[in-house]
Amino acid sequence: MKVKLFILLCFLFVLGNQAVVAQERTVEPEVGEPAVLRMVYTFTQQAVKDRESVYIADTMALEVGMNGSVYYDWNKNRRDSLAAVRFTEPVNHKITVSVDENALQSRLEAQKQVYDVLDASKGQSYRIYKKRDKGEIVTIDEGPLEGFGTTTYFQLTENIPPQAWTMTGDTSTVLNYLCQKASATFRGRTYVAWFTLDIPINDGPWKFYGLPGMILKVQDTEGQFCWEVIGLQNVRDEILIPTDRKKIPCNLKELSDFKRNKRRYISVGFVENGGVVYYRTKNPVTYFSLERGD
């Protein structure tokens, strides 16, 4: 009961301050809604490496407002900052790329020190914006380069109504919250979700929503994907779609194909002759498709 009262008070506070926030904006944002709560989840997915199953975990965040939310990789900014530092270290900024896998293998066998590994499959690069009141979900992801060093975004806009959840009557506890069980089929997979009425917000991680409380845990019945909450935080951030790059409209297949191609290769860098040489090679990890039929 205390949690419900707290959340409702947060909403009333945000509504009372929306007019002030609007006056402070210099550029009208594409979403522009204050968030009141941040849910932090562990996202675990199954993959295959050297013909054996492995599980890869990422920490994801969901920031929730009255009508919408944004879901993103909690550690992405830290990874990007570390990558930026790599390229400003006192090494000659001569960077070359090689596709000679034999040369890479000889360096690995000689146990030469690896300077850097560029792996587009690590972490999640997208941000998913839900507009629950409109049944619309917008995905913003890293797009192709345009010209030398000019980055872009892919923008995927989908009309996705709430999933058709079926309540089972079962209960469980997740992060000390009493939860109820529900199941639904979405994009070729069947999911089981645990949601709590103690946080009466119709939302959840990734593209899930449509239950009378926050989804704290959800996993597919094949055991390949799982989201589970590990923490909650109060926030006062705005939910804004980025405007710092050109956006390229795309469909789900175009976005999925682009991401799949990026994940096929990694580049291993070595300091050589005062510069860095990156050797491109096939990614040893293969990922399953989250959205089937794409």
Rank of each mutant, 00 (worst) to 15 (best):
N92C: 11
I241C: 10
K122G: 02
N261I: 06
S69N: 00
K131R: 11
A47C: 13
C10S: 14
K49G: 14
D203S: 14
P249S: 13
I230Q: 06
Q224N: 15
E272R: 10
T139N: 01
S106H: 06
P162V: 11
K207E: 06
N283Q: 00
T157N: 10
M214T: 08
D133A: 04
K181A: 12
Y115N: 12
V54K: 12
Y41C: 08
I137V: 08
G231T: 06
D119H: 02
G293F: 08
A19D: 07
K4T: 14
F270K: 01
H93T: 14
K4W: 04
G274W: 11
K262T: 12
I137P: 02
T281L: 01
L104W: 01
V229L: 07
C250G: 04
V114A: 05
V235K: 04
T139C: 01
D244Q: 02
V218L: 05
E63G: 09
N102L: 11
D141E: 06
G274A: 12
P249M: 13
A22T: 10
D119R: 00
V218A: 07
F195W: 11
K181E: 15
L178T: 15
L5R: 07
Q113C: 00
C179G: 13
S172F: 08
R51T: 14
Y129G: 08
E52W: 10
T196A: 09
E89G: 04
D116Y: 06
P90Y: 10
R245P: 00
Y265C: 03
E109R: 12
K131L: 09
D203P: 01
A35T: 11
Q180C: 05
E52P: 00
E158C: 10
D50K: 14
Q45M: 11
L118E: 08
G274M: 13
A103G: 10
D294Q: 05
A103Q: 09
I128V: 14
I248L: 15
M214P: 02
L145P: 02
V229F: 00
R264T: 09
Q224P: 00
W165S: 12
D133R: 01
Y41T: 10
E146S: 05
G169P: 09
F270T: 08
I95C: 00
N92K: 13
F11S: 06
K247D: 07
V268K: 03
Y287K: 10
